[in-house]
Amino acid sequence: MTDVAPGMLLLATPGLTDPNFVDSVVLLLNADDGGVLGVVLNRPSQVPVAEITEISSWGPTLTSPEVLFRGGPVSVEGAIAVALLRDEDDEPVGFRSVRGRLGIVDLDTPVALFEGSLVGMRIFAGYAGWDPDQLQGEIERGDWYVAAGATGDLFRDDPTELWRDVMRRQPGRLAWHSTRPVDPDLN
């Protein structure tokens, strides 16, 4: 699978050595002629959202752990909130659908407008972005595996095993990568 679309996942292959993406799982939020944008799901920081004045009011809305996640190396001073609606037909003001119930929350919207509307939410500092043909080139070079996303991927209490768990559910030989050692040369 090499076609990318919002809601899909990119999983870093063992050959991808860029420290921003080693063993990362990236949720794609946008993919069009202007480029591709996503957030890294498995990089929680130690910074509680409650300590960030501009977004602290969203703390009670967040899924545990209520920390800021490192979404990627681009625009790390900005924040992107990714959420899952309880009901796809009840989209509150300030929510932009990415795929089905998955979407992006405008953090300038009053928190009260989302009361009871969300199953979960995470806030990411920065994002990962690619020019229109750049990501396809990286996939063809073997830097990324492309996989379907699942609802549970976004809201895990402990995202450290996310890469292996997503790989484990892939079809055929791709699932074998879930058991690869960190350094195959030591095997």
Rank of each mutant, 00 (worst) to 15 (best):
N187P: 02
P44R: 02
A112P: 00
D33E: 14
R86G: 04
D23G: 05
D106C: 00
V22R: 15
H177C: 09
P60I: 09
R156I: 02
L107M: 13
L84R: 13
V166R: 01
S56C: 08
D133A: 11
R169I: 05
R168H: 04
F114M: 11
S24E: 05
M1V: 11
F155Y: 10
R156K: 10
E54V: 06
L162G: 00
A79V: 13
S97G: 12
D158K: 09
V98E: 03
D3T: 12
D106H: 00
L118P: 06
G152T: 04
Q46Y: 07
E51L: 10
R156V: 12
A12P: 10
L118H: 08
G120E: 08
P132C: 12
W144Q: 06
P60D: 12
W144Y: 09
D90V: 13
D23W: 01
V74R: 08
V39E: 09
D165W: 01
G152Q: 10
S24P: 07
G126T: 10
F155P: 04
A148K: 07
D23H: 12
P65S: 05
L135W: 07
E88S: 14
Q170F: 02
N30V: 03
P65E: 06
E54D: 15
D89N: 14
L84E: 12
P159G: 05
R173L: 15
A125Y: 02
R164K: 14
P110G: 07
A31G: 07
F155G: 05
V39H: 06
P73Y: 11
V93M: 07
N30Q: 15
P184V: 10
G129A: 15
M167W: 02
A147I: 05
E51S: 15
V105H: 02
R70I: 07
G38R: 07
A31L: 08
V47Y: 02
H177M: 15
G34H: 11
F114Q: 02
I139T: 05
R86T: 13
D183F: 08
G103Q: 03
T179K: 09
P159I: 08
V25L: 09
E161G: 05
Q134V: 07
M167G: 00
T179D: 13
E91D: 04
G78A: 12
L29N: 01
A147H: 03
P19C: 08
E77T: 12
S64A: 15
V105Q: 01
W58D: 01
A125R: 05
A5W: 05
E91I: 14
G15R: 12
V40T: 14
Q170I: 02
P48R: 09
L9G: 10
D153I: 06
W163Q: 06
L174Q: 13
L113E: 11
H177A: 14
T151K: 10
I55L: 00
L16A: 11
E91H: 01
A5C: 04
M8K: 15
R156N: 03
W58Q: 02
S64H: 14
G72E: 10
L41D: 04
V4F: 09
G78Q: 14
